[in-house]
């Protein structure tokens, strides 16, 4: 057989093939951003758990939500936007107002809701409470370390967290 010169494969259509694949992946890609509110559940009750200590009523900010998504804070009708200022005032009271918390370590926020309360209402309330805590912690972090809370080291964050612990209790009456 005569020696034939090896023909080169035309690679001109390679780009087309690659484009085809590219468009396929472009279309199927969902840059799924996954955001959410973090929460740590209380551990399951053990048999030998001591009864909860008596808590003074003034150290508890009571939030009640009924099945129609109406909300009472300490017995007064309130809207979502009222939560944050009220919570900040309550947590940072430090004994000034005799009807509010003695100090931030003792301040507890209690959320009571029913089975019919909608999830969106719960998330809204929860979000506003977190906003209140975040604002307080940021302010404290700026004062003490000159930086917002997110930029602190782990130990520094712990100091801030201990100064303003998040105490949110949830219950659903049967």
């Amino acid at each position: 057989m005569a020696k034939r010169k090896l023909q080169e494969i035309n690679a001109g259509s390679m780009a087309d093939i690659a484009f085809l694949l590219l468009i396929f992946f472009l279309v199927t890609t969902t840059m799924e951003s996954n955001y959410g509110i973090r929460r740590k559940l209380p551990p399951p009750p053990a048999a030998d758990t001591p009864p909860p200590p008596k808590i003074k009523k003034k150290n508890v900010l009571e939030i009640n939500i009924n099945g129609q998504d109406q909300m009472l804070i300490e017995g007064d009708l309130a809207q979502d936007k009222d939560i944050k200022p009220l919570a900040i005032k309550f947590i940072t009271n430090n004994g000034k107002d005799p009807n509010m918390s003695d100090n931030p370590q003792k301040a507890i926020i209690s959320i009571k809701h029913t089975r019919e309360t909608t999830y969106k209402k719960y998330i809204s309330v929860y979000n506003e409470l977190l906003a209140a805590y975040n604002e307080i912690r940021n302010k404290y972090a700026r004062q003490k370390f000159g930086k917002p809370f997110d930029q602190l080291t782990e130990e520094q964050q712990k100091i801030v967290k201990d100064a303003y612990p998040q105490k949110i209790a949830e219950s659903m009456p049967k």
Partner: peptide
């Protein structure tokens, strides 16, 4: 809680309440 799965996350969209 019963199975000690205590870290939870409520998935939400990003935006105001």
């Amino acid at each position: 809680r019963k199975v000690n799965a205590l870290k939870i996350n409520y998935s939400t969209k990003k935006g105001g309440v």
